[in-house]
Amino acid sequence: MGFKLLSKLLVYLTASIMAIASPLAFSVDSSGEYPTVSEIPVGEVRLYQIADGVWSHIATQSFDGAVYPSNGLIVRDGDELLLIDTAWGAKNTAALLAEIEKQIGLPVTRAVSTHFHDDRVGGVDVLRAAGVATYASPSTRRLAEVEGNEIPTHSLEGLSSSGDAVRFGPVELFYPGAAHSTDNLIVYVPSASVLYGGCAIYELSRTSAGNVADADLAEWPTSIERIQQHYPEAQFVIPGHGLPGGLDLLKHTTNVVKAHTNRSVVE
């Protein structure tokens, strides 16, 4: 069995187990497998329904001669939608809004960016022009300005110390501490036991640490421990890039980060 097929099978099995364990909360999309990078042309966006009122959005972007996937989250909030992270750029984010209108038909009224990198804030200006209120932590807003990236308009308070959590509509926002970046936030959907790890969490097929220019490698494993301790009931975990899975993604990420750190020390 090929690795790609095995990865998709694991996603399907995880979703099936969740649907059985929580039949009222989960209505997993039966329309197909989780979209992969090879299936999404740059400039297009796919939506994948995880649970009743919960979707991931998947886009792709060219970077350094390669094409990478990027995940975000959409959560229903009454007759409105909360968006977590842009679709990595203005063109993708405009396509995301169009796809949401086509498939869901509810307005996106608020959006949260989970850290300051372009795959999370690139497209904020498109959201703002569409009347979406954009939010991020003060740290993310400051770092985005320093980096020359787009800056969300509103500040999220109460997320300055490791372990801080605040309720934001249908989700809980959690600051686990520094990891992929010093400002990275985690998003949890309690009604569906869905954990969105953003770039602080890796997919299972990833074996290298990737972009760690703004990471705190020493603190990252401790931050992941905080996530595990705060959300032990999480059933569906979405990484910032690639295929979702279960809580095993947290341990896998820790292993990859520690291996990278150990290699760096040896070198």
Rank of each mutant, 00 (worst) to 15 (best):
K4C: 09
K4L: 05
L5N: 15
S7Q: 12
L10W: 07
L10Y: 15
L10Q: 15
Y12S: 10
L13K: 14
T14R: 07
L24D: 15
L24K: 13
A25H: 15
S27R: 13
D29N: 10
S31I: 08
G32A: 12
E33R: 12
E33N: 10
Y34W: 15
Y34T: 08
Y34L: 09
E39Q: 12
I40Q: 07
G43Y: 07
G43E: 08
Y48L: 13
I50L: 09
I50N: 06
I50D: 01
A51P: 04
D52A: 12
G53W: 07
V54I: 08
V54H: 01
S56M: 15
F63K: 07
P69R: 09
P69T: 15
S70V: 04
S70F: 05
I74T: 07
G78D: 14
D79V: 10
L81H: 02
L81F: 02
L82I: 11
L82H: 02
D85N: 04
A87C: 00
G89D: 04
N92P: 03
T93C: 02
A94S: 14
L96E: 00
L97I: 07
L97H: 04
E99R: 13
E99V: 15
I100W: 02
K102Q: 11
Q103S: 14
I104F: 07
G105E: 10
P107L: 08
V108G: 02
A111H: 06
S113G: 05
S113E: 03
T114Q: 00
F116N: 05
F116V: 04
H117Y: 04
R120S: 05
V121C: 03
V121A: 05
G122N: 14
G122W: 07
G123C: 05
D125G: 10
D125Q: 09
R128S: 12
R128M: 12
A129M: 11
A130Q: 14
V132I: 14
V132D: 02
V132S: 05
A133H: 13
A136V: 04
S139L: 13
T140S: 07
R142A: 13
A144N: 03
E147K: 14
E147Q: 14
N149S: 12
E150P: 05
E150G: 05
I151S: 07
T153W: 09
H154K: 07
S155M: 12
L156C: 03
L156F: 06
L159N: 01
S161I: 13
S162E: 14
S162V: 11
D164T: 11
D164Y: 07
A165P: 08
F168M: 10
G169R: 05
P170W: 03
P170C: 03
L173K: 03
L173V: 11
P176V: 00
P176L: 04
S181Y: 04
N184P: 01
L185Y: 00
A192C: 04
A192Q: 12
S193G: 13
V194I: 10
V194Y: 05
L195H: 06
G198S: 07
G198R: 03
Y202V: 15
L204T: 09
L204F: 09
S205D: 13
R206L: 15
R206C: 07
T207D: 15
S208C: 06
S208V: 13
S208G: 10
V212I: 10
D214W: 05
A215E: 06
D216K: 06
A218N: 13
R226T: 05
H230M: 14
E233W: 09
F236Q: 10
I238K: 00
P239R: 01
H241E: 00
G242Q: 01
P244R: 02
G246A: 08
L247S: 13
L247V: 14
D248M: 08
L249G: 01
L249K: 00
L250A: 00
K251S: 12
K251Q: 15
T253A: 05
T254C: 07
N255E: 14
V256M: 06
V257N: 04
A259D: 12
T261G: 12
S264W: 09
V265D: 12
